[in-house]
Design a protein around this nucleic acid. Structure first.
Lengths: 193, 193
DNA sequence: CCATATAGTATGCTTCACAGATCATCTTGT
DNA sequence: ACAAGATGATCTGTGAAGCATACTATATGG
């Protein structure tokens, strides 16, 4: 409802614009992925309301709830976040009483993550809301397409673009991270200020 | 090669961890989308090298190249970026001599966007590299699955989660934007400093 | 037993995006 | 026609998010 009634301002001289921009953009995979991803993040954000870490907080909680998180670092890599980010992500989650850092008996440097009772309980209701949000997001696809889409996303995410099989299946995240241009200098050169 | 050899550090007491984390995460659509999207952004970023606006700069350039961009605002909404962001995004693009802001004769407040000759020429090579990057990203899917995935993404992106048909097809982006919780206060409450 | 590598945390800084204000222009009501 | 409000673009300020770096504690290898 923001920009609904400008539309060439009187049908003057450029009737192609709307159609062309629409079609062309829709063909761009990057644009499509961006749209879908943003829509998902927005929906997830709304669904999980005020969980400390946002959508990522949910993933951390979920990982902790199914027990046995090797270490913060490993989880951070799976989730594609920096380990320093994981620190205060867990700070918030722990402050909310949802997860707990327990020292790993095998390696006193590492902390394992376990979900508290409250965390597990909350996760159940979050799962429900999240599933509903996903369903709403995937509504435009029919049943078969929905399943196919999920499978494809899963295939792309788990296999990624790695060529050789890693010895540990959980390494894929770090592969994806390694693909990143390692902090490309600027992109946006000047902005005066 | 970062965290390759911790792995339960001696097979002590928790053999489930690796497999469980992997499977559970893979079932999470949010995680999968995040992985795929990040992989795409990374690949696109690498492919378009140092184009001013990053992947979004490409989309702006592409939109400008196919001519007839109604206004900066409209484009910003399609791309899901803030209009103030669009301003300095275009500043960089224009400074690089790739696009040009031309005053709209019908509405002197608005600026139409056209790609310069250099911009159009660059776009061609960018398109090639980008297409190659996409192909690499979608490599794990076979031909049919690839097409299906593209179609699904397109369907989800264009239809989104809107219920009633908007009078202008280009409004969908703003719908997605409107879905956002409009600057949710914090998420990450405390961080001492 | 010392050197190096790793897990986690703390700190400083850069970057980025959003909100709000501003200016110019268009639109609408009277 | 003129005033009043809406809209496009830009500018500025502020705050947050993330990253690199440094630091501590522990583990491992020679």
């Amino acid at each position: 409802m923001i920009g609904a009634m400008h539309d060439t301002a009187g049908g003057s001289d450029l009737p192609v614009e709307a159609a062309s921009c629409q079609e062309a953009l829709a063909d761009d995979l990057g644009w499509g992925l961006g749209m879908v991803f943003r829509a998902y993040v927005a929906a997830a954000h709304a669904a999980i309301a005020d969980l400390p870490g946002g959508p990522r907080g949910y993933q951390v909680l979920a990982a902790a709830a199914r027990g046995a998180v090797v270490s913060q670092l490993a989880l951070a890599q799976h989730l594609g976040v920096d380990r320093t980010v994981m620190t205060y992500l867990l700070d918030d989650l722990e402050a909310a009483g949802l997860v707990q850092r327990v020292p790993d008996p095998a390696d006193r440097r590492a902390r394992r993550l376990v979900a508290t009772t409250r965390g597990t309980a909350l996760l159940v209701s979050l799962d429900d809301r999240l599933r509903a949000a996903e369903a709403r997001l995937l509504a435009p696809l029919d049943g078969a397409a929905r399943d196919a889409f999920r499978a494809h996303v899963r295939a792309l995410a788990t296999q990624g673009d790695i060529a050789e099989p890693p010895d540990s299946p959980c390494e894929l995240a770090e592969h994806a991270a390694a693909e990143l241009p390692r902090r490309r200098p600027a992109t946006r050169s000047a902005r005066a200020r």
